[in-house]
Each structure stands twice: as structure tokens, then as C-alpha cells.
């Protein structure tokens, strides 16, 4: 069994990667991947902290729940991205600025 610190460290790295990807990448799909990364970092956190309370299974279950919701969310997000692509002929959020100034 790994200690929770290892979990936290991996989770930190993973979250940081996710944030970085979200902030830096231009493509909406890659941003979506970044978001997934951050979600999974949170999952890792949940699992890691659950180690401190071996009798309780709440963390594990919550993680599973999050995975399910993330799958649904990914589906919705992908659908949105597809629709946006169809409408604007691009999947890059920077190019979509109809409400901003030119």
C-alpha cells in the first residue's frame, strides 16, 4: 500500500498538468483532455485520503461516481464541441469571439 503522500504528490502533478493544458492549449478537445486530467487528479485525491480510513469506502464510491459523471460530461462536452465546430468551422475557443471586440 502506498502512503497518502504519494497519492497527493501524483495528484498534484496530474492536476498541475491538467491546469497547464487547459490554460495553454488552443484546441478545445485538448482542453477537454486537460479537464479530464484535473478530474482524475481529484479522484486520486479522494482515493488517497480514503487510505486514512480503511473501514470506510466512501472515497472509493465517490470516485466511481465522479468517473461516471465525467464520462457523461465528456459526452456532452464533445457534443458541444462538435456543434461549435459545425457552426464556426473551428474548434479553437480563441477564434470564437463574437461577443468580444475585434
Amino acid at each position: 500500500m502506498f502512503s497518502p503522500v504519494v497519492f497527493l504528490a501524483v495528484s498534484l502533478i496530474l492536476f498541475s498538468c491538467g491546469v497547464t493544458v487547459v490554460l495553454i492549449k488552443k484546441n478545445a478537445i485538448i482542453i477537454l483532455i486537460g479537464i479530464e486530467l484535473m478530474l482524475n487528479a481529484a479522484n486520486l485525491n479522494l482515493v488517497g485520503f480514503n487510505q486514512l480510513y480503511p473501514t470506510s469506502q466512501h472515497g472509493q464510491v465517490f470516485t466511481l461516481f465522479v468517473i461516471v459523471v465525467a464520462a457523461a460530461e465528456a459526452a456532452v462536452a464533445l457534443a458541444i464541441i462538435l456543434k461549435v465546430y459545425q457552426f464556426y468551422q473551428t474548434a479553437q475557443p480563441d477564434d470564437i469571439h463574437e461577443l468580444g471586440d475585434k
Binding site: 487547459v22 490554460l23 482542453i31 475557443p93 480563441d94 469571439h97 463574437e98 468580444g100 471586440d101
Partner: peptide, 17 residues
């Protein structure tokens, strides 16, 4: 102040972060 809400999604996110 306009640039803060300049329609760039990523800048919103970074600000929020």
C-alpha cells in the same frame, strides 16, 4: 478593464484560478 472580459475563455479560467 475591457481586456479582462475580452472573450478569451482561458483568461477567464486563469483569473478564476
Amino acid at each position: 478593464s475591457r481586456k479582462i472580459q475580452g472573450g478569451k475563455v482561458q483568461s477567464y479560467i486563469s483569473a478564476a484560478l
